[in-house]
Amino acid sequence: MNNYRIGLWIGVALVALASLAPLGLNDYQQSFLLQVFLVIALAQAWNLISGMTGYVSFGHAAFFGVGAYASALLLTWGFPWWLAVLKSAGIAALLAVPLGFLTLRLRGPYFAIAMLGLNEVGRIVATLWVSVTHGGTGLTLSPELLPSLDVKYFTMFGLALGATLLVAWIHRSRFGLELRAIREDEEAAEMVGVNTTLNKVIAFVLSALIPGAVGAVYVMYTSYINPSSAFEHARNIEMIVVVLFGGSGTVWGPIIGAGTVMVLREMLWAQFPAAHLAALGVLLLVVVLYLPGGLVSILRDRQRSRPDARSGESP
């Protein structure tokens, strides 16, 4: 049985578990899982642009914020929740098209910094555009506009699953191969016929679509949004750390990373958000310095050292 098969069966088992979980869990536990799915979905989105394409974004939460605001407004205007999610994702993706063309011309640190700036611009716009966003006061949603916890749970689960399947599919596809070639050496990729700009923008738009939808569901979960919770810096940090810790550019890395980080948070430092973030900082340092491939690389290296490892590696 090769790695792919094993992964597939573990995946099926996890999906079954997550689908049945609401039957045996209380609201608190269900909310916790919902947050795990939220982190997985965001991490997969970041993985798509930064892990696979190599364009490290320090501000992908910007699209989450856009989705959250769009959804809050759509709900108050009377749209049903599912339409609000779809439209919010669409708005984030549409916004990503011009932004992608502009920012993806920048390489390496310039892109990372520009994205950091983008997130801040999002926060400033949300603060200053008082007539729509109510500025720093934020938007509060009345409970009758919101779907039940089960609906939110399954929607978030669907987003995490969808994002993972998208990454898995891209990983095995020609598109994914081209993205990885761009990550390795963009000029050389262009020189062997890869339209790097188009590929990057598509990856960027997909990676904006997911946080847009996640933000939309998030605001239904919290029923409140303001500039600093929509464009929260900690969310960027979490995305990056989770992916790097699990293993960037892989399908399983973000899931393993999100699971580990969230469980640690719940068990060890749920009461101290600052300690949680400081711990994420330490984790980031440790991973960057000592474990560049993330947790997944430990598993994979064990596989590689087996004598038959090479035969299972056809693309």
Partner: peptide, 29 residues
Amino acid sequence: SQIYRRGLARTFQLSRVFPELTVLENIVV
């Protein structure tokens, strides 16, 4: 990429294989 697809290809003075891609992937891409 347009020029390449048109039928004009080049190699680089210093090797520019994609380091984290397999040899086969390097060629298939």
